[in-house]
């Protein structure tokens, strides 16, 4: 590869956590590096850079995606959500709150990716326990043994069921 190749750049216009972004990036820059080091949103973590561990999971147009398997240039025209978008002010999102309540995290490195996958899953109509566990199944957590995460999933589902009952009555 010559220096001319590496210098190739691409225009990225996208929305990140509701903010319009417009940048010139090197064509080969990964989306994960773009989010972390160009935009400074370091809540998205990089654990393997080959799409297995799930730590870098973000939402691209609402679908969970491995940011390490996309080039920043491929995000052109998309809407991206990262872990920084989940809480509103002092309030954690229901998934975040459940992780806090149920000791769903220890070192916290894999956590943002799992939160994003579960967030996407919960937006699907009729999301059930099996689907949520399957979403977490795409992530590796080396600290918790998944026990607290599993309880957090149960909590989120129980709260959802309660809310449904509330709307029905």
């Amino acid at each position: 590869m010559t220096s001319n190749d590496t210098a190739q750049s691409a225009q990225v216009r996208c929305t990140v956590n509701g903010q319009a972004i417009e940048r010139n990036v090197e064509s080969r820059m990964l989306l994960s590096d773009f989010i972390r080091h160009e935009l400074g949103l370091t809540g998205t973590h990089v654990g393997c850079e080959h799409g297995v561990c799930g730590a870098c999971t973000v939402l691209v147009d609402g679908d969970s995606a491995r940011a390490c398997l996309m080039f920043a240039a491929q995000a052109d025209g998309t809407e991206i959500e990262t872990v920084e978008s989940l809480a509103s002010g002092d309030s954690l999102s229901p998934v975040q709150q459940a992780f806090s309540d149920q000791h769903g995290l220890q070192c916290g490195f894999c956590t943002p990716g799992i939160l994003m996958s579960l967030t996407a899953c919960m937006r699907e109509a009729g999301c059930n326990r099996e689907q949520m566990l399957s979403a977490v199944g795409g992530h590796i957590c080396r600290c918790t043994g998944y026990v607290g995460i599993s309880r957090a999933v149960d909590q989120v589902l129980a709260e959802g069921a309660e809310q449904d009952r509330g709307t029905e009555s």
Partner: peptide, 8 residues
């Protein structure tokens, strides 16, 4: 850590 405000 849950807010993505860890500092690794």
């Amino acid at each position: 850590l849950l807010r993505g405000l860890g500092r690794y």
